[in-house]
């Protein structure tokens, strides 16, 4: 177990080092002048030259990389060329709001996806299965940026039921300000007993979370189905059935229990999927999160921000994958570590 853990952690570090090398190399071969972006569109030549020196852009590439990594591990992620603030500060502001969105979306897709998956496995090849399959495949085929637009058109423009975007209504934020504790508006509002902020946050979450959940719902449904099917085909289920145990009991006591692990895996994997999916969804819904920040950085070729966010999301992805694997090993001793 310990050897496995060490190996996995080392691998994680390797992955993250690789990530940093790739993004850094790409960032420096871009035909963009970071110094020009730094000083803004009306700078004078001497200002650009000075900025280049200040940003260390006059150093050889490997020196720049070593310096970048050295500072990075000390918490200095560089300064965004666009917002002109430390990338880490920006990330601290925007990450919780993305995390809130992703968590709610993931919750939605798990709550809906697991029953769908079980249903479609037990009614295999009958219409509920076909329907769930079509639904699931349409989920992974859906351009989320387009789905978000359609939802806005229906629920905002036509029905006038839900707000078009943002995280909370302006007035509510001005009149019922929230002190960020967890950074999750829903939690903060509930903890503070701030009812208007709570309802406003919830209402603003519905469309983006539903959009985002749609894709991972498909994933969760299909993986649950596959897991249940696989378990159902295994010997101990056959034995249970042969022993004449009632089908309900077989399904819920034995099959579902054994299908938890693969489903857990997919929840973990969906998380990474959602972290990436949230980029476009946030843009559509004007959600003040990491995704909107990243897309703005991408458009401006703000490479410290691009690198910082990429690294952060990759780290989260690696850690979650690791956590899922370890959890599997703990729950199911049959999972081989090695």
């Amino acid at each position: 177990m310990r050897a496995y853990l060490v190996r996995r952690l080392l691998l994680g570090v390797l992955v993250l080092l690789g990530v940093s090398v790739i993004t850094f190399t790409l960032a420096r071969i871009v035909p963009s002048d970071p110094a020009a972006l730094w000083v803004g569109p009306r700078a004078r030549p001497d200002q650009v030259a000075r900025a280049r020196a200040e940003l260390g852009l006059d150093q050889p590439l490997h020196v720049q990389y070593a310096r970048y990594v050295g500072k990075f591990v000390q918490g200095d992620w560089g300064v965004s060329l666009r917002t002109r603030r430390p990338v880490l500060d920006d990330v601290k502001v925007f990450f919780p709001s993305s995390l809130e969105l992703v968590t709610v979306a993931l919750g939605l897709s798990v709550v809906a996806g697991i029953p769908f998956g079980v249903m479609s496995a037990t009614r295999r090849d009958r219409w509920p299965d076909h329907l769930s399959r079509l639904f699931a495949i349409s989920g992974v085929s859906m351009p989320l940026f387009w789905l978000g637009l359609l939802l806005q058109l229906v629920f905002f423009r036509t029905l006038r039921w839900l707000p078009v975007g943002g995280r909370m209504a302006t007035e509510v934020r001005l009149l019922h300000p929230l002190e960020p504790v967890t950074g999750f508006n829903l939690l903060d509002a509930a903890l503070a007993g701030n009812w208007p902020a709570l309802t406003s946050s919830a209402v603003h979450l519905i469309l983006p979370a539903a959009t985002l959940a749609y894709a991972s719902l498909a994933l969760v449904t299909r993986m649950t189905r596959a897991a249940v099917l696989e378990v159902l085909a295994q010997d101990f289920i056959r034995t249970a059935r042969a022993m004449g145990l009632p089908e309900r009991r077989v399904l819920y006591r034995h099959a579902l229990k054994n299908a938890v692990i693969p489903t857990l895996t997919v929840v973990g994997l969906s998380f990474g999927y959602l972290m990436a999916g949230t980029f476009l969804v946030e843009v559509i819904f004007n959600w003040p999160g990491l995704g909107s920040y990243m897309v703005a950085a991408i458009i401006a070729v703000d490479y410290p921000a691009i690198m910082g966010v990429t690294f952060l999301v990759a780290t989260a992805y690696v850690l979650i994958n690791l956590a899922v694997d370890l959890l599997q090993a703990v729950i199911d001793p049959r999972v081989r570590l090695g």
Partner: peptide
């Protein structure tokens, strides 16, 4: 609940609310 939220409130109501709540803000 959505309709009674901030988004579609009539102006008169809104400004009364602003008046009352702004002290806190």
């Amino acid at each position: 609940t959505v309709r009674s939220g901030s988004l579609f409130r009539r102006p008169s109501l809104r400004w009364t609310a602003v008046g009352l709540a702004v002290l806190l803000a």
